[in-house]
């Protein structure tokens, strides 16, 4: 069981053109900002909107191929979907919601109910089977929605922002549970989210989608350490620049040169965490190879630290302790010196 798709959907002022593949048992997260086309891609996979071009192949079956006039209706795809707000049928109990799929696919009423009861037990909701959706908490509704999608034994499981509707505390607990349940699904899973933490915790592989295009794919470690767009860099909290490498130095736009610890040549990205940037009131002497004057543009709390946005030859985010901020008298407009150790800078080919 594997998924292989190229999803092309054209709308006025927007084109989605994304290739997507997933192996059996693999969880792929489609991560991107709002309006990137994530949900459109998911709906196209489910057959709720038609492709304008491309193809969807699941398990070796061609589900969609507009060029050949092939389109499979959603009810014949065997693709399970967990919708963002779950869309549990309000007039049916939790059990009837879960039994709906097997019943629609031709199982007897008794068999459908037995299967539904089994799945509800697996997600820990056996005693909530008779409740209507409005009597369930957000986390419980999410689990019923998952059980409902799994009840049809789908060949592909799709989840649209599965945790977005939950409050922060429920989210933490539900995320851990969800990870466990996804592990029991034998087929591929595609998960749409705009939350990098959800993506990294739940997925084996990330596919970053921006403005309808796939801009980066890879496992969580690769994507977080080597972002390739500003969006991903912001998500994972890194300063990211693109320039031209020559030996250990990378020349950035504006002729600013960053020294790195890696020998490389050609177009390259350089990235470093805000915590690697140190600030001084006066020009420091000593080892750091990168030193430049900067001006404080804005400051905001960021966890235990203060994140300082700096302008200068390059725009940079730096994290300093509150104590250091007081000592330096940081405030917008204050001129400081920034330093960065070459060993803290990662560079990789663009």
């Amino acid at each position: 069981m594997s998924l292989d798709a190229r999803i092309v959907v054209r709308r006025p002022g927007f084109v989605l053109d994304a290739e997507l593949a997933a192996e059996p048992g693999e969880v792929v997260a489609l991560l991107g900002p709002n309006g990137a086309g994530k949900t459109t891609a998911l709906r196209a996979l489910a057959g709720l909107i038609a492709l304008d071009d491309g193809y969807v192949t699941l398990d070796g079956h061609r589900l969609d191929d507009p060029a050949a006039g092939v389109f499979t209706a959603p009810e014949h795809r065997r693709i399970g979907v967990v919708f963002q707000d779950y869309l549990l049928f309000p007039h049916l109990s939790a059990l009837e919601n879960v039994a709906f799929g097997p019943r629609s696919r031709g199982s007897s009423r008794a068999d459908s109910r037995a299967r539904a009861a089994d799945l509800l037990a697996r997600v820990g909701l056996a005693e909530h089977a008779r409740r209507k959706p409005r009597e369930l908490s957000g986390g419980q509704a999410q689990r019923v929605a998952l059980a409902r999608a799994l009840a049809t034994e789908p060949r592909l499981l799709l989840l649209d922002e599965p945790l977005a509707a939950l409050d922060a505390r429920t989210r933490l607990e539900t995320r851990a549970r969800l990870r466990g349940h996804l592990g029991t699904h034998a087929g591929p899973t595609v998960l749409v989210t705009h939350d990098p933490l959800d993506a990294m915790m739940l997925a084996d592989r990330l596919v970053i989608l921006e403005e309808g295009r796939v801009v980066q794919t890879g496992d969580a470690a690769t994507v977080t350490s080597r972002p390739r767009t500003d969006y991903v860099a912001r998500l994972v909290g890194l300063n990211l620049y693109r320039g031209r490498a020559d030996a250990g130095a990378v020349r950035l736009p504006g002729d600013f040169v960053l020294t790195t610890a890696t020998e490389r040549s050609g177009d390259a990205f350089v990235a470093f965490p805000p915590a690697a940037v140190a600030l001084y009131a006066d020009r420091p002497d000593g080892s750091p190879r990168n030193t430049w004057p900067a001006t404080v543009a804005a400051m905001a709390r960021h966890g235990d630290a203060l994140r300082v946005e700096l302008t200068g030859p390059i725009a940079v985010a730096a994290d300093v302790t509150p104590a250091a901020a007081v000592q330096l008298g940081l405030e917008p407009g204050r001129r400081v010196w920034a330093t960065l150790k070459a060993t803290e800078v990662t560079s990789y080919p663009a």
Partner: peptide, 11 residues
Amino acid sequence: RYEEAAATLGA
């Protein structure tokens, strides 16, 4: 969208 959900469940 409830109808879409039903369709994905095979109805």
